[in-house]
Amino acid sequence: MDLFLQLLANGLINGSHYALLGLGFGLIFSTTRIVHFAYGPIVTFAAYTAWLISGSMGLPLIVGIAGAVLVAALLGTGSYLTLYRALERNGAPPLIPLIASLGLTIVLENLVGVLFGTGVRTLDVDSSVHFLGPVFFTSIHVWQVVSFVVIAVALGAFLRRTRYGRAILAMTDDPEMARVIGIDTLKVSIIVFALGSAISAVPAVMVLLKDGASTHMGFAAVFMGFVAVIVGGVGSLRGAIAGGYLVGLVESLGLWQIPTEWQGSISFVVLFLMIMLRPQGLFSMARK
């Protein structure tokens, strides 16, 4: 039972992490329908930037986080303006951006290695261990959950209360209609790329603090973000959150009785069943 509770806590903590990744990825994907795989190496870049500022240069962590957010937002916007925009203009069919994005992923991932060198980077912060009954967790775990809640609430407010937020929601609903009613879809696309990438910098820094950053950390990030979005239902940010938590919990609790050598597939089995049984996702915007 203690193990179950611990795994439950782990699942919720990881779920927050995946949900945050899902929010960033989902914002971009649901609005522009671009499978932005390079989201992964941008996460890596953000983590290494935070390490460079706060670890190597010794500035306060908050400066490091700010730097990471800035770099991620710039890279995200840059990839839209230089790559995806050019593809859109040349009338590329829907899955071309996905392949182009993979090309960008290869470039960015290796660029991290060239710029920052290989090997793991860590940043030591004072993290204490807490326990709640039999359940252990560290202060970084708490930060993961808190950062997710804060960002999710802020993002929700932004989307519902501001003009640009509503424009994003409109475009998520129906890009054609958004264009018809006079929304500047170019501007909205730039905003979601900047915002989605900026959000991804936060979980990136958390990984740096928790497990250390490595040049290939981005793959898991984009994959889990993507999975959270699909499980939750494309076009729904609430869905991305629910998807993130579901994947986190299943990945953790699923291994309660199953040997851990199956860890790599368990979330995929769930994903598989999920899509087969409920292809519209947990929360679906699909209207018939």
Partner: peptide
């Protein structure tokens, strides 16, 4: 690999 990725992107664009 960086050059490879750039060529791939350029062709697609």
């Amino acid at each position: 690999l960086i050059i490879y990725g750039c060529v791939l992107m350029a062709v697609l664009v």
